[in-house]
Amino acid sequence: MKRTPLYDLHVELGGKLVDFAGWEMPVQYPLGIMGEHKQCREKAALFDVSHMGQVILRGENVGEKLEALCPQAFATLPKGKARYGFFTNEDGGIMDDLIVSNAGDHFFVVVNAALRHQDIPHMRAHLDEVEVTEIFDRALVAVQGPKAEDVVGALCPAARDLKFMETTVAPIDGVECRVSRLGYTGEDGYEISIPEDKAIEVTRALLAHEDCEPAGLGARDSLRLEAGLCLYGNDIDQSTSPIEANLAWAIQKRRKEEGGFPGAERIQRELAEGPARKLVGIKPDGRAPARQGVEVQNLQGHTIGQITSGGFGPTVGGPVAMGYVAAGHTEPGEQVNLIIRGKAQPARIVALPFVKQNYKR
């Protein structure tokens, strides 16, 4: 298995390491998943996300060329701004989701760890006269939570001036880093790309703040689930359209109207007519969590969908889930049954997110 530049620090801090997409990653620390989740919601938590693919795109009209692969408006993305996007396939499914930043003289792209082997060749094959460089000499950490600005801003004053989905290059503890105000927890926070040889030094400096603690993959998953954020491979995949997944907001008006990206025919049709199924929040009535793959039935016993992500929501104080249900069953308040170990457990459709998102707009 691969190791991130912070591996030795994880061991030192008592991280419990597991295999995640071929990487040895901390699933939790001595604070525990519940404690780390609470830390992120109330103060600040630091996550190692160095397993993600970091890619630099250089060339003429990079944003315009990316629009042939993604339904986002990257040609007009201003310098210093980041945008959530996704590669679509010819059937209108999602190949992967990603963050694209306009860094001025290049574009900076972060892709999912498990799909870097797909995404980077995909860009190299289709972005004519664009130099596609995956960078391996940098760590990536996420500092998330209502105190994230205090934690990062104490070492990097420029970070305080960033708004949600803005990015800059600035020194942290004397080390030049790329600092982006975004994240995957529903809280305010930053993702910070750090030179590999300074990664532990900078991470220690961030963790030295009294309001910051390390957190692992377990808390990251419960946080993003409560925030209603999709996980690739669970809630979105090659067969899922962005319209089914409630991601129409991530497609700018011009792209919706003009098309010109893979799968545009299906996506434009679903925008006009509505999809056959939709991603919804599902709240089990009892205490038992409903995991991925659990069948969703209506009260008459007919299958109407399936859970794609589920678990215990520490902030909510009970089980939470997301899943796809057939059109006509998506209204919040509808009573459904979840078939858990052969037994029907009552649940209801609820609006997403479960916990209010607290980004600094």
Score class of each variant (00 low, 15 high):
121 P>C: 12
133 T>G: 00
122 H>D: 11
109 V>S: 05
106 H>V: 04
111 V>A: 10
128 D>A: 11
129 E>C: 06
129 E>D: 15
137 D>A: 07
113 A>F: 06
107 F>M: 13
124 R>S: 07
133 T>H: 02
104 G>D: 06
114 A>V: 15
107 F>G: 01
138 R>D: 00
106 H>D: 07
117 H>D: 14
125 A>D: 14
112 N>Y: 02
130 V>E: 00
134 E>T: 00
120 I>W: 12
113 A>R: 08
110 V>C: 09
119 D>S: 12
124 R>I: 02
119 D>V: 13
131 E>F: 05
136 F>I: 07
135 I>R: 14
115 L>I: 05
105 D>N: 13
139 A>I: 03
118 Q>S: 11
133 T>W: 01
115 L>F: 10
125 A>P: 09
107 F>C: 03
108 F>L: 14
107 F>K: 05
128 D>T: 09
116 R>T: 11
127 L>D: 04
122 H>I: 11
123 M>G: 05
141 V>Y: 00
107 F>P: 02
105 D>I: 05
141 V>Q: 00
130 V>N: 01
133 T>A: 08
127 L>S: 03
108 F>H: 13
127 L>V: 04
106 H>G: 02
123 M>R: 05
105 D>P: 05
123 M>I: 07
110 V>N: 07
108 F>C: 06
112 N>I: 08
123 M>L: 15
115 L>V: 07
103 A>F: 14
125 A>M: 14
131 E>K: 11
132 V>K: 05
124 R>C: 04
137 D>R: 08
136 F>S: 05
133 T>F: 00
115 L>T: 10
108 F>Y: 14
134 E>P: 03
129 E>G: 04
102 N>Y: 07
139 A>T: 03
138 R>T: 06
137 D>G: 08
113 A>P: 08
103 A>L: 14
113 A>D: 06
135 I>T: 09
125 A>V: 10
113 A>M: 12
122 H>G: 07
114 A>S: 15
137 D>K: 08
140 L>F: 02
131 E>A: 10
102 N>P: 03
105 D>E: 15
114 A>R: 15
140 L>P: 00
139 A>H: 02
119 D>T: 10
136 F>P: 00
130 V>Y: 01
105 D>A: 09
133 T>Q: 08
105 D>Q: 08
123 M>N: 08
137 D>V: 04
103 A>I: 09
117 H>N: 12
107 F>D: 01
104 G>R: 09
109 V>P: 04
105 D>G: 05
138 R>F: 04
112 N>Q: 09
130 V>I: 07
137 D>S: 11
131 E>G: 02
129 E>K: 13
133 T>V: 14
113 A>V: 03
111 V>K: 03
131 E>P: 01
111 V>T: 14
122 H>A: 11
114 A>Q: 15
133 T>C: 02
127 L>M: 08
136 F>W: 06
117 H>Y: 12
109 V>C: 12
141 V>L: 00
126 H>F: 11
135 I>S: 02
117 H>W: 13
105 D>T: 08
137 D>E: 12
104 G>K: 09
126 H>I: 04
114 A>E: 14
109 V>L: 14
